[in-house]
Amino acid sequence: MCWRSGRGPGCQEGRGSGGKLTAALRWSLDHHDEWKAAKEKADAEDADIPEALEPPEIMDGFGGWYDDFWRLSTERQIGMGVGPIPQSAIDRHVAGWSDEDADMFEFCIREMDGVFLMRANKTEEAPAPGNPMEAFRSATAARRGK
C-alpha cells in the first residue's frame, strides 16, 4: 500500500525486496546480540562464526535501504508506544528520486516499519494499513487498553 496520494497499485511492486529486508530486520531484532557475542568469540579464537548465526542475505543494491531504515527510525514519535516513521521523513529522503524508485523505497520501509512496530510495541498485530496516524493508533492500541 502506498500512502502517497495519487499513486496506484504499482506501489506493490517492491514486495520481493521488502521481504528480504524484513527478513534481515527480523534476524537483527532476534539474533543480533547472539551474533555479536559469537563474532567476538570467533575473533578472539581466530575461528569462524557458526553458520546458523549468519544474517540473511540482502539483495544487491538494497543494503543501503536497510541502513536508511535505521536512520529514518530516529524520526519516530514516542509516547504511549513507538510510532511509525513519519511520512514527511520518507518524503524528504526520496526527494528527487523517480516515482518508481520512491514508491518501492516507501513500500519496503513501511513493510520493515510494520515488523519493527510489532516488536517495539509488543503486539502480534501488524499496524493498520492506511495513513500513518492509523498505523500509530493501531500500534499503540494495546498500551492504551483498547
Rank of each mutant, 00 (worst) to 15 (best):
I109K: 01
E124Q: 12
E100M: 09
C108A: 14
F62Q: 13
E51L: 14
H93V: 06
P9Q: 06
A102D: 04
S88L: 13
M112D: 04
V115M: 11
H93A: 08
I85M: 06
G83C: 11
A37K: 15
I49E: 05
W27L: 07
R15N: 07
D30S: 15
H93C: 12
D91C: 13
R76F: 06
A47N: 09
D99I: 03
V94Q: 08
L72W: 02
A23W: 10
S17K: 14
L72I: 08
L29F: 10
E51D: 15
E54C: 05
R7S: 04
E13F: 06
A141M: 09
F105N: 02
Q87I: 03
N131G: 02
G14K: 00
I85V: 13
D43F: 08
G18I: 01
I109M: 07
P84C: 02
H31L: 13
A95E: 15
D46R: 13
Y66G: 07
F107M: 08
P86F: 05
F116C: 08
F62T: 07
R15V: 11
Q77A: 12
P9D: 07
A102G: 08
V115N: 06
L29C: 12
G79P: 01
E134V: 02
G63C: 09
R4F: 00
G64Y: 11
G63K: 10
R144D: 02
V94D: 05
E51Y: 14
G61H: 14
V115S: 03
R71S: 12
K41G: 04
W35Q: 06
T140V: 13
P9G: 09
A37R: 15
A139Y: 00
D33E: 15
A142L: 10
G14R: 00
E125V: 10
D33L: 15
P55I: 07
S88W: 06
V115R: 09
C108W: 04
D67P: 04
M80V: 05
A120Y: 07
T22D: 05
K39G: 00
F105Y: 14
A95R: 12
G18S: 13
L72N: 09
D91R: 15
I78W: 04
W65C: 10
V82E: 02
H32M: 15
E54A: 14
R110S: 02
F116Q: 01
D30G: 12
